[in-house]
Computed example of a mutant assay.
Amino acid sequence: MSQHQKKPNPDERRDNLKKIQENLNNTLENMQEAEDSMETASEFQEEEIKKKNARRREAVDGMRDELRDEHAHQKRQK
């Protein structure tokens, strides 16, 4: 491997639970802020917020699955 080629980063999982939980919390907070902003939003903005929050709900489901998987992985490593 030449000095200009990068080596892949090792799989660093020690702080995965923390990172996933932070992302989950931020997404839930963003969803709530978006819901709150709908009070003053136009019809178009309200539709866009609903669409975005639907995508966020899907992401939340994925993050929750990821949290469960990572938690199980860490338990197996002990």
Rank of each mutant, 00 (worst) to 15 (best):
F44S: 13
Q3W: 04
E43M: 06
P10E: 05
N16K: 05
K78F: 09
Q45V: 11
G62E: 04
S37A: 07
H73S: 10
N23D: 14
Q32T: 08
R13M: 11
Q5E: 10
D15M: 11
Q45K: 14
N16P: 00
E39V: 07
R56D: 00
K78L: 11
R56Y: 09
M38I: 07
D65H: 10
Q77I: 15
Q77D: 12
K6V: 03
N53V: 02
K52G: 03
R76H: 13
R68G: 01
R68L: 11
N26G: 08
P10I: 09
A72H: 07
M63V: 07
S42H: 06
Q74Y: 06
D69R: 13
N30K: 03
R13T: 15
K75L: 15
K19A: 15
K6P: 00
K6L: 14
G62V: 01
E39K: 14
K52L: 11
R55G: 14
M63E: 06
A72S: 06
R76L: 15
S42E: 03
E70Q: 15
H4G: 10
L24R: 00
N25S: 14
R57S: 13
E22V: 10
T27M: 08
E58C: 04
E22S: 14
N23P: 00
L24E: 01
N53Q: 09
R57D: 11
T40K: 11
A59P: 00
D15E: 14
N53D: 04
E35R: 04
E46V: 02
R14M: 13
G62I: 03
K7I: 03
E39C: 04
L24F: 04
E22K: 14
L28N: 01
H73G: 00
E66T: 15
G62D: 03
I20T: 01
Q5K: 12
D69S: 14
R76V: 10
K52T: 12
D11I: 08
N26A: 10
R13Y: 09
R57A: 15
R68Q: 11
R64F: 01
K78S: 05
Q21D: 13
N23G: 07
A59D: 02
D36F: 03
P8G: 07
N30H: 03
D61R: 15
A72C: 02
S37N: 05
I20G: 00
N16G: 00
S37C: 02
I20C: 02
N30M: 02
E46Y: 04
E22Y: 10
N26Y: 05
H4L: 10
E70K: 06
E48V: 10
D65S: 12
N16D: 15
D36L: 06
A34N: 04
R14I: 15
V60F: 04
D65L: 10
E22M: 08
E58M: 06
R55D: 15
R68K: 14
E33R: 03
A41P: 05
K19G: 08
K78R: 09
M38C: 09
E47V: 04
Q3I: 01
H73N: 07
R64G: 00
N53Y: 02
A59I: 01
N16H: 12
R13N: 08
K78H: 13
I20Y: 03
E48A: 08
N25A: 15
I20F: 08
A34R: 03
N53R: 02
A41Y: 10
D69N: 13
K50T: 04
H71S: 14
M31L: 11
P8A: 07
S42Y: 02
R13G: 09
K51W: 12
D65T: 06
T40N: 07
